[in-house]
Computed example of a mutant assay.
Amino acid sequence: MRAVDLFEEGVEVPCIARELRVSEKSVHQWRRTWRTGGREALRSRGPSGYGCRLGPHLQAKLAMWLEVGPAAHGWADDPVWTAARVRTLIGRKFHIS
C-alpha cells in the first residue's frame, strides 16, 4: 500500500494527498488508523453492503435464465438485460427483492 510506505518514509500529509489524488482529510484518517492498527488495519475488507441472498445453486439457476435472454421472460421489445429487468426476474423466480 502506497500510503503506508509514504507514512513510514515520513512524507508530509499534503504531499501524500497530492500524490494519491485524495483529500488531506482522508490521509489524516488513514494515518490515524495506521498508527493504531498498522498496515493490516488499512487493508480493504471488500465491498460493503449486504451479502447476496442467493446461494450458489440459485445463482446458477439465475445465470441459466439470464443466458436465454430477456425475450424468453416477456421482454421481447428489447433484447438487453437491464438492472431493473434482472431485479424483476429475481422477484418473479425467487420471490425476494
Rank of each mutant, 00 (worst) to 15 (best):
M1Y: 09
R2A: 15
A3D: 12
A3T: 11
A3G: 06
A3Y: 07
A3C: 14
V4S: 11
V4P: 00
D5I: 07
D5L: 13
D5W: 10
L6H: 00
L6E: 04
E9I: 12
E9A: 15
G10Q: 10
E12A: 15
E12F: 09
E12C: 10
E12W: 04
P14L: 06
P14N: 05
I16E: 01
I16L: 01
I16R: 01
I16D: 00
A17R: 01
A17C: 05
A17M: 01
R18K: 15
E19R: 14
E19G: 10
E19N: 10
E19I: 08
L20I: 08
R21I: 09
S23F: 00
E24G: 02
K25C: 00
K25V: 08
V27Y: 03
H28V: 07
H28T: 04
Q29E: 12
Q29H: 11
Q29N: 13
W30E: 01
W30H: 02
W30D: 02
R31D: 00
T33W: 01
T33M: 04
T33E: 08
R35I: 14
T36K: 08
G37C: 12
G38M: 09
G38A: 06
R39V: 12
E40W: 03
E40P: 07
A41P: 11
A41S: 12
L42D: 04
S44T: 12
S44I: 03
R45L: 12
R45C: 07
S48A: 15
S48T: 13
S48F: 10
S48Q: 14
G51R: 14
C52W: 01
C52N: 12
P56N: 11
P56L: 15
H57P: 03
Q59V: 12
A60R: 14
K61T: 05
K61F: 04
A63T: 09
A63W: 04
M64N: 03
W65R: 08
L66T: 10
E67L: 07
E67G: 03
V68H: 09
V68W: 03
G69M: 00
G69S: 01
G69Y: 02
G69L: 01
P70V: 04
P70A: 08
A71H: 13
A71K: 13
A71Y: 07
A72R: 15
A72M: 13
H73T: 04
G74Q: 10
G74P: 12
G74R: 10
G74L: 06
W75T: 00
A76G: 08
A76E: 09
D77F: 04
P79Q: 15
P79V: 06
P79I: 04
V80F: 03
W81H: 10
W81K: 08
W81N: 06
W81F: 07
W81R: 09
T82M: 08
A83S: 13
A83Y: 13
A84Y: 02
A84R: 12
R85F: 02
T88P: 01
L89W: 09
L89T: 06
I90E: 06
G91F: 10
G91H: 14
R92T: 06
R92L: 11
R92Y: 05
K93Q: 15
K93D: 09
H95C: 05
H95F: 04
I96T: 03
I96Q: 00
I96M: 04
S97F: 03
S97N: 06
S97M: 07
S97Y: 07
